[in-house]
């Protein structure tokens, strides 16, 4: 009994798995000190199988809430993260210093509160990025995201204000904005 011929998109998916399998094989080489043909072959086979099994994850938009505005991992503007990540890294250091200062302060100067903000993004990954960025910046942790609403716990008044003024949301919007789509953030 012959299996039905694979559709064109299915073939494309498998071809798309090749670069990912190379990345995985590089990871194998990094972790495995054994360089004989048996272990290298094992690594290559594992990389290929995992890449083929994961091909759909890379090629399909993640199911975060409504998928109408979803974008696949491959279509993401990865190059813009080059400018975003260094900025985020400095925020992480500032955030840690602030929390360290607060907990070591004798009077524990906190004024915790819940903040809800709304940010409309064209992509689910943009929402994911904003949620994680809020978590990593001073005084705030994202607790829940429901469609366009972000539930944020702020440790300080400052954190609450910084979340509400939308500077972070604008940066994330810039990160994902493409000329043919409105950001609407």
């Amino acid at each position: 009994m012959a299996s039905p011929p694979p559709t064109r998109s299915r073939v494309l998916q498998l071809v798309g798995a090749v670069p990912f399998s190379l990345v995985l094989f590089g990871f194998w080489l990094l972790l495995s000190p054994k360089r004989d043909s048996f272990h290298l072959g094992l690594g290559a086979a594992t990389a290929l199988v995992v890449a083929v099994l994961a091909a759909r994850l890379v090629a399909q938009p993640p199911a975060l809430g409504s998928t109408a505005r979803a974008q696949t991992l491959r279509q993401m503007p990865w190059h813009r993260f080059g400018r975003y990540l260094p900025w985020l890294a400095t925020r992480v250091v500032v955030a840690s210093l602030e929390v360290a200062y607060i907990v070591l302060h004798p009077r524990l100067p906190i004024s915790p509160r819940m903040v809800r903000i709304t940010a409309r993004y064209p992509h689910t990954i943009a929402r994911l990025t904003l949620a994680n960025s809020i978590t990593l910046t001073p005084g705030t942790v994202t607790l829940d995201v429901e469609d366009d609403t972000f539930v944020v716990h702020a440790l300080t008044d400052e954190g609450a204000r910084a979340t509400q003024d939308g500077a972070m949301a604008d940066r994330v919007a810039l990160l994902f904005h493409s000329p043919d789509e409105p950001t609407g953030a």
Binding site: V103, I110, P112, T135, V141, H153, L155
Partner: peptide, 26 residues
Amino acid sequence: AGVIGILRLPDFYCRLHAMGKCDTLG
């Protein structure tokens, strides 16, 4: 600092801050 934060901060959500930030960087 993260550990002290977990001990000193008053509730679950505040403790999340100490855990999520100081520990990651540390």
